[in-house]
Design a protein around this nucleic acid. Structure first.
Lengths: 161, 161
DNA sequence: CGAAGATACTTTCATAATGTAATCGTTTAT
DNA sequence: ATAAACGATTACATTATGAAAGTATCTTCG
């Protein structure tokens, strides 16, 4: 909770980085969740909504609307799964692949702007340290935990005037 | 947007750190906002709600309920400001000071758990690097930007079936 | 002085985010 | 074949949050 404490700095900078990236993505009319989905579909094509929701920790019911939107914009396609008609087989479209490249460009610009204070050696060192901490903390590489409500603040808010 | 990219790692770890800290605070029946307020009141006693909302970037109308809660729990006190009866003069109570110490303890435990992968030298290095980046990015030391909706995602969600 | 405007806090209201549970069609197991 | 399980979807409740109006107070200026 103090100014120079690394844990606080991490939370502070992490939020800042996420905010900045969110702003940049908005130019492409995308949210971070959208980008995460597109990125995952590139390497894990044909997965179902269930699998997608598990991997990205997005609630299945929320995923519906997100995919509706991405599909309407022709970035993603829901194909029927021949083996099981309950499941969809999700795929990146051509447009989806193209926008993914633009996302990559945005991400590189974002990172460059974010780390402009550091030289190459320092960036490398920072990356290593973060990676070590992340690994030890059991974070899945490439999956942003989001900021979901976890323990949902206990109702210490009894409202009796 | 890739696995080993420092910007992503930063956002990912920052969210993780914030989540973990939020969980630990919940044990004390406090939210991060509560903790931020208590901490600020220790060093900036007698400020008004207006000032508080500006410093912590909390919407004034939201602050009302938060302070109602803290005051009901006797952690904070709204004293009248003799010079201007529109303003409150906010103060930490004795209980507030005590819980602040417990918050400090929780924060230290949190940080220790978070950085257990790193030795002292690495922690120092990490802190320096984060500080450099944070300063260059214009972040106010000690103020968490929160995750407020910034540009509010453009309505690319025209719902025309 | 006293009216007009600004300011601080509070309240009300509209909207958005997100989770729970029910629903529908399909598949699997007995 | 029937029951249970499952994936996707929808409906609904809850919560978060900001915009704006309301109330009291202060300041400014005629």
């Amino acid at each position: 909770m103090e100014r120079g404490q690394p844990a606080f700095l991490l939370a502070q900078l992490g939020a800042h980085a996420a905010n900045q990236f969110t702003e940049r993505l908005a130019v492409l009319q995308l949210t971070p969740a959208d980008a995460g989905i597109l990125r995952l579909l590139r390497v894990a094509a044909a997965i179902s909504q269930q699998e997608l929701s598990e991997k990205l920790r997005i609630h299945p019911s929320r995923l519906v609307a997100i995919l509706d939107n991405l599909e309407r914009r022709q970035l993603v396609e829901r194909k029927p799964n021949p083996n099981d008609r309950r499941l969809y087989s999700l795929h990146l479209t051509k447009d989806g692949g193209e926008i993914l490249e633009r996302i990559g460009k945005v991400a590189r610009e974002h990172q460059e702007a974010l780390l402009s204070a550091l030289n190459a050696a320092d960036r490398k060192k920072l990356t290593e340290l973060l990676q070590q901490v992340g690994d030890q903390q059991g974070l899945t590489r490439g999956v942003h935990p989001g900021y979901q409500r976890l323990g949902k603040t206990k109702p210490a808010d009894l409202k009796h005037s």
